[in-house]
C-alpha cells in the first residue's frame, strides 16, 4: 500500500512517518500533484500557521488535487483545519472539503490547548476499538465548532470538534502519531479503511 504524507513545508513529517512505519507500512513524502494521485492513502499533517501553509498548497498545485482525491485522506491538526472552508487564523481560505471554519479559542483559558484530553462519542471506523473517553494529545490554538459531520468531540473551555468526516475525507484535531496506544489504533483503523461506507 502506498501511504503518502503531504509535504508542503508546514511542520515536520517525521513523527507521522515514523508512526505509519511502526505499523508496518512504508510512508513516502509527497509534494507534487502526481505523488498524491498515485497514493492509496493520503495523510495531510501540519503544524504551523494557516495562511502560509495555505499559500504553499496553492503554489504547488496541491490545493486543487486534494479535494479531488478518491482514496482515504486523513487531515491532522492544521491539515484538518485547511480542509475546511476557512480559518480565522490569518483569515485563510481553505480547501472547502468540510463546510465549517476554524476559530480561535477565546479568553479565559490558556491558549494553545496543549496536552492530553479525552474525546467522546467517537463514531466511525476510525474509532473502532477505541474507548469512549480515550485520551489523545492536542496542541492547537484554533478549533472547529461542533458540527453535523463531527465524528468525535472534545471539551476545552467549550465543546469542540475533535474529529470530522465526509465521504473519503477524515480529519482529527489531535495528533494520533503522538497519542500512545489510542493514536496508534486510530492510525491503524485509518489505514485499514477503504474510504467507502460509514465514515
Amino acid at each position: 500500500m502506498n501511504v503518502t504524507i503531504i509535504e508542503y513545508g508546514a511542520g515536520n513529517l517525521f513523527s507521522v512517518r515514523a508512526a505509519v512505519e511502526r505499523l508496518g507500512h512504508v510512508a513516502a513524502p509527497g509534494s507534487t500533484p502526481d505523488d498524491l494521485r498515485a497514493a492509496d492513502r493520503v495523510i495531510f499533517p501540519g503544524v504551523g500557521q494557516a495562511l502560509s501553509a495555505s499559500e504553499k498548497l496553492r503554489a504547488t498545485g496541491l490545493a486543487d488535487v486534494i479535494p479531488a482525491l478518491r482514496v482515504p485522506v486523513l487531515g491532522i491538526c492544521l491539515g484538518m483545519q485547511l480542509m475546511c472552508e476557512r480559518s480565522e487564523e490569518g483569515d485563510t481560505e481553505g480547501l472547502g472539503i468540510f463546510p465549517t471554519a476554524a476559530q480561535r479559542f477565546g479568553e479565559g483559558c490558556k491558549v494553545p490547548h496543549v496536552g492530553w484530553n479525552r474525546i467522546s462519542g467517537g463514531r466511525s471506523p476510525l474509532f473502532d476499538g477505541i474507548d469512549d473517553g480515550a485520551w489523545f494529545y492536542f496542541v492547537h490554538s484554533y478549533y472547529l465548532p461542533v458540527n453535523p459531520l463531527q465524528l468525535a468531540g472534545c471539551h476545552y473551555q467549550l465543546p469542540f470538534c475533535a474529529a470530522i468526516g465526509r465521504d473519503n475525507f477524515l480529519g482529527c484535531q489531535f495528533h494520533p502519531e503522538k497519542s500512545g496506544d489510542a493514536g496508534e489504533r486510530l492510525l491503524r483503523n485509518f489505514l485499514a479503511w477503504d474510504g467507502h461506507g460509514r465514515a
Binding site: F14, S15, A18, A19, E21, R22, Y137, V139, H175, E177, K178, S179, G180, D181, G183, E184
Partner: peptide, 8 residues
C-alpha cells in the same frame, strides 16, 4: 528517539 516514541 522520534522513531520509537509515541508521545511528544
Amino acid at each position: 528517539v522520534a522513531e520509537v516514541t509515541r508521545v511528544p
